[in-house]
Design a protein around this nucleic acid. Structure first.
Lengths: 135, 135
DNA sequence: GTGGATGCAAACTCTTTGCACCTTG
DNA sequence: CAAGGTGCAAAGAGTTTGCATCCAC
């Protein structure tokens, strides 16, 4: 049976409060606020366990290390900001994906990743552009 | 300027003839038929150079190591077979992806990955199922 | 002949694991 | 107090790099 250690609680809290998928080292950083002795090995061990028991979901983006988010949300995909590299959930989905398939293939799942600028970085870029126009 | 070594030629040939994105170790294996002394370090060095000069494209799938394919094709996405794990190109694309975005975000690119069974594995699975019905 | 390319081994990064110690129930 | 959890350090996997040697031009 599982125990509620200070470390495990801190890891779960960090992910619940983040609102976006986090990398192991981001989780370590956040969770250390609550559990300062926390080690990266413990983060990995807990993540594996929490994914196995269905509490967390793994978020794999192309060319990126695994991130983690609380399970239980609806079907969604992800957006990565080209500037700050953070990942956000996006609701909704594209259709007609099976129309793309070669003959003889069957699909049972899909992943969609969008790239661009998040609202924060977009705002920041606009502010910089405005300042340059002014000068 | 670049030189045409036996090794570089073998790497390019392996990718041209594969017809699907290959992993570095698959490239090594194939290219060694032509250049038996080829080392993995040389494969990686050449891949980087060939991607930089636009001869190859990097293919990143979620949770997978980088694969490589000849550049120059049209816009396409990828399909990974859940059984043999090989990756194939799929033509075509989904629309209305920007409808998924949160307010304030902007998209400039996207990746779509489909998962399922490739024609080979599909055929094999059907054959096994038929054999079991018969027995 | 010379500069780019290669092969090997060592270095690096990210993740996992062994082990002694600690903590929860 | 026993079983599971933790921290550390070492081990692994995949990729990159330093360096002496090699070879394409």
């Amino acid at each position: 049976m599982e125990r509620n250690t200070r470390q495990r609680t801190a890891i779960a809290k960090a992910l619940r409060e983040a609102g976006r998928p986090l990398l192991p080292h981001e989780i370590l950083e956040q969770a250390r606020v609550v559990a300062p002795t926390l080690s990266l090995a413990t983060v990995y061990r807990n993540l594996k366990q929490l994914v196995d028991d269905g509490t967390l979901h793994l978020v794999h983006l192309p060319g990126e290390a695994a991130r983690f988010e609380p399970a239980g949300g609806v079907h969604h995909h992800h957006f990565q900001c080209r500037h700050c590299e953070r990942v956000y959930d996006v609701l909704g989905c594209a259709d007609h994906l099976d129309a793309m398939l070669p003959r003889g293939f069957t699909v049972d799942d899909h992943e969609i990743t969008l790239y661009g600028r998040c609202a924060d970085c977009q705002r920041r870029a606009r502010r910089v552009a405005a300042a340059q126009r002014r000068s």
